[in-house]
Amino acid sequence: MLDNKIYSVSKLSAITGVTIRTLHYYDKVNLLKPHRRIDNHYREYTQKHLALLKQIIIYRELDFSLTQIKDLIYSNEFSFVQALSDQKKLLLKRQEETQLIINSIEVTMNVLAGEKNLELLFSDMPLSFNDKLITLKEDEDSYNSMLSSLGELSELEIESSKKQTDEWAFNYKLTLLIPIDSDEVQEQVNKHYFLMNSLFKKLHGDSFKGIGYEGYLILAEQTISNPVTKAVYDNYQSGMAEHLYEAMIIFADKELKGNIEQYRQVTI
């Protein structure tokens, strides 16, 4: 009969996944007390023991203490509902703490990935460029935020963006002696606007709705005021940052002001 089936400690361990050492401990603290054979004093477990052990396993997964479990199993006065309520509060608190740790780990991982991507982006910059990065690192929050954003991109996306930027910069260099309001220059600025939208879309996903008039003016200002950005453009060609800044201002006033929705539709 199934009800009369007897299990050795090793068999019970194999069935439930509870280690033999743990079963011995449960015996010691009177949580799961097996029968003892008369001839050799070996531990023997019945179907009832198996059922109790399965309950213990469930309660342990809910993070109940052994004392609480003993009360749950053997005491008629113990309030199971209250115990579950208290345990739920503890688990929710632990969940919040665990999520904070996970968030911190994810930020750190993104920052580390961002540092690697930063190296890929600026791999061909001169050694003096490191001095510009040091000034950027002084604002630790902004710097880590930038790294975290870069960390969202794959190595392939970084390489693709750099290739597109390098190709654009090569063509823009050919226009540096041409007036900034000429069709040739403004065509390259238009391509620059597309590149910036593409990059921000990759960085921010669906939350990004396109660079507006004011946003592009800010980018233009950063072209000459941000030492890192200025160094990047001037590394392609000396004076390129200043030339691009003035050309971007004209483009923003001529093309984006009052016409941004049309541009957003084709760039996002």
Rank of each mutant, 00 (worst) to 15 (best):
L217G: 08
D124M: 04
N171H: 11
L120K: 14
I224K: 09
Y172F: 14
E221S: 15
E187S: 13
E159R: 14
L177V: 03
L177A: 11
L177M: 09
S123T: 10
E214C: 09
L203T: 06
N190F: 06
G212D: 13
F194I: 12
N130W: 09
V189E: 01
T223S: 08
L153G: 02
F122G: 01
V228E: 10
I180E: 07
S182W: 06
L127A: 11
N171R: 12
M196A: 11
P227M: 08
Q186A: 09
G212E: 07
F122K: 04
S148Y: 01
F170N: 05
Y143E: 04
E159D: 13
E152V: 10
W168Q: 00
N197E: 03
S207V: 14
D181T: 08
L133I: 14
S160T: 14
L136H: 14
N117Y: 02
E167G: 04
Y172Q: 06
Q164A: 14
K116P: 00
L203H: 07
E167K: 13
S161Y: 07
Q222R: 12
Y172G: 00
D166M: 05
P179E: 04
S154R: 08
Y216H: 15
D131C: 10
N171K: 11
F194A: 10
G205V: 11
D124L: 04
K132N: 02
S123A: 15
E221G: 14
I224Y: 05
K163G: 00
E187Q: 13
K202G: 01
D124K: 12
Q188V: 02
N117H: 07
Y172E: 00
K116F: 07
Y213K: 06
H204L: 15
M146G: 00
P126D: 05
L121K: 09
I224E: 03
G205Y: 11
V228D: 09
Q164K: 15
Y143L: 09
E155I: 13
S142R: 11
T175C: 07
L120V: 07
L176P: 02
Y193I: 02
P227T: 08
Q164V: 10
E115L: 14
N130S: 12
S145G: 10
S160H: 10
L217C: 08
F170Y: 08
S182M: 05
E157V: 06
S145W: 04
D124V: 03
N144R: 09
P179S: 06
M196K: 09
E167Y: 07
I134Q: 15
N171P: 00
S123E: 13
I218Q: 13
E159F: 07
N190Y: 10
M146Q: 04
I178F: 08
L118R: 09
S128E: 11
E159I: 13
Q164C: 08
V185W: 02
D141P: 00
T135P: 01
Y216V: 03
F129G: 06
D141K: 15
S145C: 04
L147K: 02
S123K: 15
L195R: 09
E155V: 12
G151C: 00
I178T: 14
I180C: 04
K163T: 10
L174P: 01
L177I: 06
L153Q: 02
I178H: 05
K116R: 12
K173S: 10
L147F: 00
L147H: 01
E187R: 14
L203I: 12
P126Y: 01
L219H: 13
L120S: 12
K202L: 14
S128W: 01
N144I: 04
E214D: 14
N226G: 05
K201W: 08
S160F: 12
N117D: 03
W168A: 00
D166V: 07
E187G: 07
